[in-house]
């Protein structure tokens, strides 16, 4: 199905997302939208749901449930990270940093448990993480990793929105992504005051990071012992 689609605008932090760049006509025609301007959700078709995950991997699933499990996986990773950060605070941590990083831990735990509960039996299993590359005693290592995770989370939710078919789920993703963005800005300011929304995160059109699941999962992979399979996730 998706092979018959015209090439979509590339994802990533660039300016090629909107019709202006490649003409209204082509914009309307992509996804098979009809020329009358009446749009149909037809291009949110899932991939075939029968792709077999490799042995030992965790299948995120398909459709909206797949996207919710994708978010659940990222929240598991973030929660596990901040739990460790608070369990063994880095050298020289200030009282204010400890308090706000504890808040962030709690927010990520709230997100994780929310998805787990809402997904019920459709939830993926608890993931095993691998933080061997992180030096939890080092402020630079911890905050550098936190920045990577928060920016990645923002880009992941921003990229996943268009893969969601249920407006209720879209709203929930929206409720969470802005909190991740608040975290990202705070962590960035801890590293370098004023970098909350610098040009490494925001492009010339004032747009934030966006990434598709495959790219997000590639970035997350080194921090996971568990192997995730995204082959059944919806694509645009």
């Amino acid at each position: 199905m998706e092979n018959s689609h015209p090439v979509l605008p590339p994802t990533g932090n660039n300016e090629d997302l909107l019709p202006g760049k490649f003409g209204r006509r082509k914009f309307i025609s992509y996804c098979g939208l009809v020329a009358s301007g009446v749009t149909i959700a037809a291009c949110k078709k899932d991939k075939d749901n029968d792709n077999m995950p490799p042995a030992g991997s965790i299948d995120l699933g398909s459709g909206d449930i797949g996207i919710l499990n994708y978010a659940y996986a990222l929240e598991q990773l973030e929660a596990a990270f901040y739990i460790q950060v608070i369990a063994s605070p880095y050298a020289g941590i200030t009282a204010n940093e400890l308090a706000l990083l504890t808040d962030i831990r709690d927010h990520e735990v709230a997100h994780r448990e929310f998805f787990k509960t809402a997904l019920g039996v459709k939830a993926i299993t608890n993931l095993e993480v691998n933080f061997s590359a992180v030096n939890f005693g080092s402020r630079d290592s911890v905050l550098g990793t936190a920045k990577a995770f928060e920016d990645l989370g923002v880009s992941a939710y921003n990229g996943a929105g268009q893969l969601i078919t249920d407006p209720g789920y879209l709203l929930l993703a929206g409720k969470i992504v802005s909190v991740e963005a608040r975290h990202a800005a705070y962590i960035r300011d801890l590293i370098s005051n004023g970098s909350f929304a610098d040009s490494t995160a925001i492009n010339a059109s004032g747009l934030d990071l966006v990434n598709k699941p495959a790219d997000v999962l590639t970035a997350a992979k080194p921090f996971l012992k568990s192997v995730l399979y995204a082959g059944n996730l919806p694509t645009v």
């Binding site: 997302l17 923002v154 939710y157 921003n158 929105g161 929206g174 992504v177 802005s178 909190v179 991740e180 963005a181 608040r182 975290h183 990202a184 800005a185 705070y186 300011d189 909350f196 929304a197 995160a201 925001i202 004032g206 747009l207 934030d208 990071l209 966006v210």
Partner: peptide, 12 residues
């Protein structure tokens, strides 16, 4: 969504 999260960064 990309504008939305920028506003959240500003707010933060």
């Amino acid at each position: 969504l990309q504008i939305h999260s920028v506003e959240a960064r500003h707010a933060s």
